[in-house]
Design a protein around this nucleic acid. Structure first.
Length: 672
RNA sequence: GCCACCGUGGCUUAGAGGUAUAGCACCUCAUUGGUAAUGAGGAGGUCGCGAGUUCAAAUCUCGCCGGUGGCUCCA
């Protein structure tokens, strides 16, 4: 007999040789949802035979660990289906990921989205056959023989296995894969799979290696869970800022203007302006000075900063000076020669600024600075241009021209902690106002044994400590990320979760010891000596483009009243109220409300339908009753109504809601 | 940049070798209507761009541009 410790701490006696599955059934009952078990802290298969004392904790298919196992097993099922349908395809690797799983195949060229249905059908068929999944220990020789025809598996065997050591395979039916496991005990657990997309990937993520076909899928423990996941995906699609941006006419990207270059249309520009003003108010309160700098700068500036030519690949090509250009053209200069000459500094020219720091630094150094001037906080909604790879560009979140909510703080060593804290407070205020309370912070630290960092190590210790303290002060989740610091200093990243649980990386706060050195920045200390300031870069919301994109999805286009592109739409019922309608609209407009009037001759039902798509906070319906009593009838976004409200009263409440930046419109009480 | 898929009037969309559907939006006229589409009429597209095959191309082939999903990278 052996003694097994259960999750609740109690001990049960079993005869040796019992399987994990039998123990789990004993603990959870016959109808459990477990897919594996943790035995003495190690995740193991259900079929594991137990013949000595140990602790057993069942792993539910709904837990993170259980989902991981389900996904991994589903990847195997996918590979089995693919190799059945496409015998030439070579499975390479197929892990579980945060949202499902994928498997990469070689020799599957030409496979497209249209082929997914057949493969999924095959997977269901294999799942329904309920094939046992079996773990088999193999020697290196056996493995080499089994995977002889698959160079990818052989590469893993040769790289990952120590000489002479064996490993395990998982076998289901006549198919098997090199794998450490654990896996579900049988394919029936994998009924609820859905293949989602096809893409390509490089073998081992290396661009110089073979291109593989990657197939993505989802798996859930139950039918309902799969349905829920699919619903969530549809919801995400419905909120997609690219779709809403078009529907609500917020922005436009034009082929002829260029990829990733945003044209803010009036309605979107309004949102951006409101946000910018809101942030500006807080900057002023926090002692920032706002500045303006041009969109270009000389190449030499970026040679000093180190951005050129080092980051040449991710920048727009430089603007070469006119005379030089024609001279080069006359000389028949090739592009390669041109690039070399620019890198070497033989050619002068200008660059679209890829960041604002060098310009701000020049403002700092335009005057002799003393410790009394510090901290100097220079803020700018600065537009920068970066040459993102074409495949990477998407909507408002990945673009080639964007405006950062940027600022650079020039501080003394002693001021770092307070100033980092100040940056973080700003984020707190803005997120709070937008109802984005669910966010976390990543503190990027250096990894100790690397010598790639500038600045001495006790300075780093203090700066890192300042970042940690600032993060702690927020009272939100934060994590240390060793090795994530930039070479020039530690940083703090903000990651927000929107209302449907997706995470978005927004801005950062970065301490920088490097640029002050490169530009030889100085200030005179109280001791009369010259000292070097430290810079803090901060763009808490990243860019206005991305932040607006995230907000569009966060609010699903239904912005709080203070941000709504049009706050009130005035709709008249018939021609008789045109005059009153114009008067109401004028009163609101004079009071600074963003209002739109529809006094056309459509029916009221149709007007409501048409104006709804712009998601104003309120619609005012004006008929005879309202016109004679000089009132308004308010219609909220969800259709709730409140009639007979005096115009003055409505305006007063509306202004209150706008000025307080209320997170949701609430002038019409809910009727349910 | 790479792979797969996609590209028809402002939007959604039919059409798979014989120069193009329909709905919404738009314009005109009639209607003066109470909270998610009043009726009738009209205008608008050489089917992303360029080349090729063909008597004939939105439809087939190639190249380019743009989009979507991923990969890769991110100061």
């Amino acid at each position: 007999m052996i003694s097994v410790t259960l999750p609740d701490g109690s001990k049960n006696e079993y005869s040796a040789g019992i399987t994990a599955a039998e123990i789990v059934t004993d603990i959870e009952g016959r109808k459990h949802d477990c897919v594996a078990a943790e035995i003495d802290g190690l995740e193991m298969d259900m079929a594991t035979i137990i013949d000595s004392d140990c602790t057993v904790i069942p792993i539910s298919g709904f837990s993170d660990e259980g989902m991981h196992i389900l996904r991994h097993s589903a990847a195997h099922l996918l590979a089995q289906a693919i190799t059945t349908l496409y015998p030439d395809a070579k499975p390479t690797i197929g892990p579980a990921i945060d949202r499902g799983f994928y498997y990469d195949f070689a020799n599957l060229d030409g496979f497209g989205e249209g082929d997914l249905k057949t493969v999924q059908k095959k997977m269901h068929e294999l799942a329904r056959r309920n094939i046992d999944v079996e773990r088999v220990e193999c020697t290196e020789a056996e493995l080499s023989e089994m995977f002889a025809t698959n160079p990818y598996k052989m590469e893993i065997i040769n790289d990952k296995l120590e000489d002479g050591a064996g490993s395990t395979i998982y076998r289901q039916g006549d198919w098997y894969d090199l794998c450490l496991g654990p896996h579900v005990s049988c394919t029936a657990k994998l009924m609820h799979v859905r293949l989602t997309s096809v893409s390509s990937a490089f073998w081992r993520g290396d661009q110089s290696r073979e291109q593989l076909t990657r197939i993505y899928g989802l798996v859930e423990p139950t039918k309902d869970a799969l349905k829920q996941t699919m619903t969530a995906m549809e919801e995400a699609k419905r909120r997609d800022h690219r779709k809403l941006g078009k529907d609500l006419q917020l922005f436009h990207v034009d082929e002829e203007v260029g990829q990733g270059l945003i044209l803010w249309t009036p309605r979107g520009a309004t949102i951006r302006t409101c946000l910018q003003n809101f942030i500006s108010e807080h900057l002023t309160r926090q002692g920032y000075d706002q500045v303006y700098t041009p969109h270009i700068g000389k190449l030499d500036l970026y040679r000093t900063s180190g951005h050129f030519p080092y980051y040449q690949d991710s920048q727009y090509p430089p603007l070469v000076e006119k005379d030089m250009m024609s001279k080069l053209a006359d000389d028949g200069c090739t592009c390669g020669e041109l690039a070399n000459m620019m890198a070497a500094g033989d050619i002068e020219g200008y660059m679209l600024k890829p960041m604002n720091c060098p310009h701000h630094i020049k403002i700092y150094s335009s005057q002799a600075r003393s410790y009394r001037d510090l901290p100097l906080r220079l803020a700018e909604f600065g537009t920068v241009y970066r040459w993102e790879q074409s495949g990477e560009i998407s909507g408002l979140t990945r673009v080639r021209g964007f405006t950062q909510d940027d600022a650079h703080l020039f501080v003394t060593e002693d001021q770092i902690a307070d100033e980092v804290l100040g940056c973080i407070e700003l984020v707190e205020v803005i997120f709070e106002a937008l109802g984005m309370s669910d966010y976390r912070v990543r503190v990027g630290l250096r990894d100790q044994d690397s010598s790639k960092y500038v600045g001495d190590s006790d300075k780093w210790d203090r700066a890192e400590d300042a970042c940690r303290k600032a993060a702690t002060s927020l009272g939100v989740n934060w994590s240390e990320e060793p090795g994530e610091a930039a070479f020039y200093g530690p940083k703090i990243d903000f990651v927000v979760k929107d209302v449907i649980g997706r995470e978005w990386q927004l801005g950062t706060v970065q301490v920088d010891y490097n640029l002050p050195q490169r530009f030889d920045l100085q200030y005179k200390g109280s001791d009369g000596e010259m000292h070097r300031p430290v810079m803090i870069h901060r763009a808490p919301f990243g860019s206005m483009e991305r932040f607006c994109g995230v907000l569009i999805e966060h609010f699903a286009g239904r912005f709080p009243t203070w941000l709504a592109p049009t706050q009130v739409h005035v709709l008249t019922i018939s021609e008789k109220q045109v005059e009153y309608g114009r008067e109401v609209a004028a009163v609101l407009k004079d009071a600074g409300v963003r209002v739109e009037l529809d006094d056309g001759d459509d029916t009221i039902g149709k007007k409501i339908r048409m104006h709804r798509k712009f998601q104003p906070a309120y619609m005012l319906i004006l008929g005879d009753d309202e016109a004679t009593q000089r009132t308004v009838s308010i219609r909220a976004r969800n259709g709730d109504q409140k009639a007979g409200i005096g115009l003055d009263e409505f305006l007063k409440e509306l202004k209150g809601e706008i000025d307080s930046k209320a997170a949701t419109p609430s002038l019409v009480p809910s009727q349910d």
